Amino acid sequence: MSRVALVTGGTRGIGEAICTALNDAGYKVIANYGGNDEAAKAFTEKTGITSLKFDVSDFEKTKDAIEHIEADYGPIDVLVNNAGITRDGTMHRMSFEQWNAVIQTNLSSCFNTCRAVIDGMRERKFGRIVNVGSINGQAGQYGQVNYAAAKSGIHGFTKALAQEGAAKGVTVNAIAPGYVDTEMVRAVPPEVLEKIVAKIPVGRLGNTNDIARTVLFLVDDTAEFITGSTISVNGGQHMY
């Protein structure tokens, strides 16, 4: 039987590439999304992958959704926490709402999803959790104290949970992407993007498949000796 994989923020960008790669590798994939119904519909029509709308920043809604997923498709053995938003602004202009939205969606969501699956993974003595951090959680970024804090928190969360799961066959790792060619990055003004690319030693933006391939490596059944790691996929921009 195929292992069931849940990918949050799974219908666009990096999440879409992760879902497609897992699906092609034989996993039964469920893609979570938060709000863009049109994009989710197009994603499912194109890939045949089930998309399910629920708010990962809400503990009870996440718990209920995961219970329904497991009832319908079987236990979740692979969890990829990819959901994320930005609400950029310098500290002296940032509202609490901007801060809180990013912390809840990007960081608290990892607790919400992991808490819902961890007991089952421990009982079955198998689990693969991959949390998507960011280069900006490692190096910081002007105007992103909320985003950098959340992504940095993911890296610490990963290391702590990895220690708890190791003896039970549950690995927990993080990926820290650099600047990847997605809608979010394409919205950056061209002159700014040019400066960013100039700082990347390999000379290009990442692509979504660079991240998806790393996820496939980490969630494989044979990747049992890799846990608590943060793998930087950034073209050498920040060596951490």
Rank of each mutant, 00 (worst) to 15 (best):
V180L: 01
H92L: 13
Q98K: 13
N106F: 10
D221I: 03
D88E: 12
I49D: 02
E164G: 08
L218I: 08
L205C: 01
Q98T: 10
T230K: 10
G74D: 08
G127C: 12
G9E: 07
F111K: 07
V192Y: 06
C114H: 04
K63V: 06
S2R: 15
E70I: 03
T90W: 03
E224T: 15
A65L: 09
V197E: 08
K46M: 01
I66N: 08
T113N: 04
V145W: 03
P75V: 05
D58W: 00
R93K: 15
K53N: 09
G13W: 02
L6T: 06
E16K: 15
N112V: 03
E70M: 15
L107C: 04
E194C: 05
A148K: 08
R3E: 12
I118W: 11
V117E: 07
E123Q: 14
I154V: 13
T171H: 10
N131T: 01
V215L: 09
I66G: 05
T90C: 08
Q104K: 12
F43K: 10
V78W: 02
R122E: 11
N32D: 06
H92K: 13
V80A: 04
M239P: 00
K168F: 13
K41E: 14
V7P: 07
G137N: 11
D220E: 12
K159G: 01
G133P: 01
V117C: 12
G35H: 10
V29Y: 08
V202G: 06
V80H: 06
P201Q: 15
A116T: 08
F54G: 00
D220N: 14
K41I: 00
V202E: 10
L107Y: 04
V132S: 00
V215N: 10
S152P: 00
L205P: 09
V132Q: 01
V197G: 01
M91C: 10
G13V: 02
K46Q: 13
A5C: 05
I118F: 15
G48I: 03
E224W: 10
G140S: 05
G10K: 03
K195Y: 04
Y240A: 15
G127A: 14
N36V: 02
I85N: 09
G26Q: 05
Q163E: 07
V145I: 07
N136C: 01
C110K: 04
G156Q: 04
K168C: 09
V56S: 12
G35R: 13
Q144L: 05
A17H: 00
L218E: 07
A160C: 15
D37Q: 14
E45R: 13
M121K: 00
E183H: 12
G169E: 02
G120T: 09
I76L: 08
A83R: 01
D77W: 03
R115Q: 14
R115E: 11
H238C: 10
V29Q: 11
G74E: 11
E123K: 14
A148R: 04
T11G: 00
I231S: 02
D72C: 00
W99I: 07
D181I: 05
A166R: 13
T8K: 11
I103K: 02
A21R: 11
K53V: 05
A42M: 09
K63M: 08
T214N: 06
N234P: 06
G48D: 07
V197C: 11
T222N: 15
E97R: 13
V80R: 01
A223L: 12
K125P: 02
Q141H: 04
S152W: 01
E191N: 14
I135V: 15
G133K: 09
A83W: 04
T44Y: 09
T47R: 14
K53D: 02
M121R: 06
